[in-house]
Design a protein around this nucleic acid. Structure first.
Lengths: 202, 202
DNA sequence: CAGGGAGGTTAGCGCTCGTTAACCTGAAGG
DNA sequence: CCTTCAGGTTAACGAGCGCTAACCTCCCTG
């Protein structure tokens, strides 16, 4: 487990600020000059680090999808490696926890994730879609193990809907009135489990 | 109850197509020429019906928020007008049903609703935000009647999250493999109730 | 039957934005 | 000490877009 202690590179600064701006005002609503200004350089200086504005968005979206999928696979492997065979309940809880962490810690990315996909080049979009699909299918598999009386199409719909629930985090923090990160995470977790449980009750 | 039988006006055609295009490619990603072409006239012809591209978006967003709020108030009044005092469970079910109908029948509008709000003039944005807030507060009130052991901030978060769940409909229809409108609506309804129920379980 | 407004058309202006070109600078390496 | 190169700068170009201007053509009405 590599914990970053070194300073973020300029590329990473740019990506972070670009994600924030894209999430706030949309891909077409942000100019390269603004992105540059956000990291203290001006407009065309960005082209020393990226081939173009499109490339930034592509790297962000591919990165998000890849991180989500990789994290989910890691959690699945960890649970499967346990002594007593795989415990589907524990795996599902772990998946939910991972997704919540992501939704709470990287809200701009979560926002971009299902908002700006169409602005990508065909090849990049296909890659992102493929990663997303694998992520969904991984969830569907586990959900059907926990709730066997759930048909596959219904399970897939349920997974998408729970993603909608968990990805609602950007709408929560309008005022600072939300009850702290831990409580919010626990609330989302309970609601996700409750939604899945109710989905299985025909 | 006025059921429309007359043909849609040109204005309405334009709004409908603009909503679809904005939802597909974002407000800045669509040109006025495209919107015009979608209704069979060309670019600047739109200015006979709207003051500008911004005005179309504003009318769409204000319309959505207003319809949602009006519908919710009507449902609340109908339930309150019943013989045996108000039944919070029934009201909540009715609110959920109304929101699901909207999410299933007007997916482009649902998409716009939380995506392009920032592109509005200040006054329009404030109006939309106010309508949205009233809609949320109406839900919060009913939810807290059904689940009294839910504190207000948690209830508000739960409402936003359930909106995220219900508004996931645009992500469901990738392939035509979803199990029909009725089944989808029922699934979403069960999940929403399950999520609220789990939110109340501390 | 005149006339006027509703609802189109095309041409074109002005601005914004992504991108490139040309140039500069400070620090590292032989 | 000279070179080189990463990482900036400003100027400017070209395309696209929202919007206006000017004009046309029905259709309705007095």
């Amino acid at each position: 487990m590599a914990t970053r202690t070194d300073a973020p590179t300029r590329r990473e600064q740019i990506l972070k600020e670009a994600a924030r701006l894209f999430a706030e005002r949309g891909f077409h609503g942000v100019g390269v000059d603004e992105i540059g200004a956000a990291v203290g350089i001006s407009g065309p200086g960005l082209y020393r680090h990226f081939a173009g504005k499109d490339a930034m968005l592509a790297e962000l979206l591919v990165g998000i999808s890849g991180q989500l999928l990789t994290g989910a696979r890691r959690r699945l492997a960890e649970a499967d490696g346990g002594p007593a065979g795989r415990d589907p309940e524990a795996v599902l809880d772990s998946l939910i926890e991972g997704h919540i962490d992501f939704a709470l810690d990287d809200r701009p990315l979560i926002t971009l994730h299902d908002r700006e996909l169409d602005r990508l080049r065909d090849s990049d979009r296909k890659l992102v879609r493929q990663l997303q699909r694998q992520y969904v299918e991984l969830w569907v598999e586990i959900v059907r193990e926990v709730y066997p009386d759930l048909a596959e199409p219904a399970a897939r719909s349920a997974v998408h809907s729970v993603f909608g629930l968990l990805n609602s985090t950007p709408h929560l923090g309008r005022a600072g009135a939300l009850p702290g990160r831990g409580a919010t995470a626990a609330l989302l977790h309970r609601m996700a489990r409750g939604a899945f449980g109710a989905a299985g009750t025909d």
